[in-house]
């Protein structure tokens, strides 16, 4: 996953069922970013972001801008737009994965293209977390998470939930041509081939 986001100006869509391990992925990504003293914005459509879990994953909370939209999807989209145009944030996360899929599907496509151009202009990495794939052509890459396994420890009488592991499948690789032209270290064909395919 990191080699994906190493590349700037990417709009990556991450979709996956509930409890498929997406949040674990995102938190580890944010942890590395804040470790590099970068600032990240989390636009939280349904107030689902848990700072305690983030801190346990090693995220430096002072470097996170958390925007709680308390279930108002259009505010979340507007906020995301402002943040992307303001710039200065290395990672911008729009988390709508708790919203019912049929509502997500009704989001007009124009948003995604608008976000795509804003991301490329501002040089940030835009991560869209959705329950079902919805960004279509807008996103420059798309990944799907599937739960690999759940680890429970202890005896049947006294269990303890340990981890939920995810496996990432690349649904759409970067459109390599446009990237290489721009001369920055984009994802080359080899990267896509050697990463796991659906």
């Amino acid at each position: 996953m990191t080699e994906m986001t190493e590349k700037r100006r990417a709009f990556i869509e991450i979709s996956g069922e509930r409890s498929s391990g997406k949040t674990g992925l995102i938190l580890s990504e944010l942890a590395q970013a804040t470790a590099r003293r970068e600032f990240c914005a989390v636009i939280d459509a349904t107030d689902s972001f848990d700072p305690v879990s983030a801190r346990n994953a090693g995220v430096d909370l002072n470097h996170i801008l958390w925007i709680c939209c308390t279930g108002k999807l259009d505010s979340a989209l507007k906020a995301a737009d402002y943040i992307l145009h303001a710039g200065g944030f290395s990672h911008v996360v729009l988390d709508i994965c708790d919203i019912r899929p049929e509502i997500v599907a009704r989001i007009p496509r124009s948003y995604w293209f608008r976000f795509r151009f804003a991301t490329e202009k501002s040089g940030a990495v835009f991560l869209l977390i959705t329950p079902v794939p919805c960004s279509g052509a807008g996103s420059s890459a798309a990944v799907e998470c599937v739960r690999e396994k759940v680890e429970w420890s202890g005896s049947p009488e006294y269990r303890l939930l340990e981890t939920v592991c995810a496996r990432t499948l690349i649904r759409k690789a970067f459109r390599s041509a446009a990237m290489i032209k721009a001369g920055n270290r984009g994802i080359t064909l080899e990267n896509i081939l050697n990463s796991k395919h659906k």
């Binding site: 949040t23 938190l27 689902s48 972001f49 848990d50 879990s53 709680c68 708790d98």
Partner: peptide
């Protein structure tokens, strides 16, 4: 080892 959590508020 703790799993990542999403809150419902």
């Amino acid at each position: 080892k703790q799993p990542a959590t999403r809150k419902l508020r």
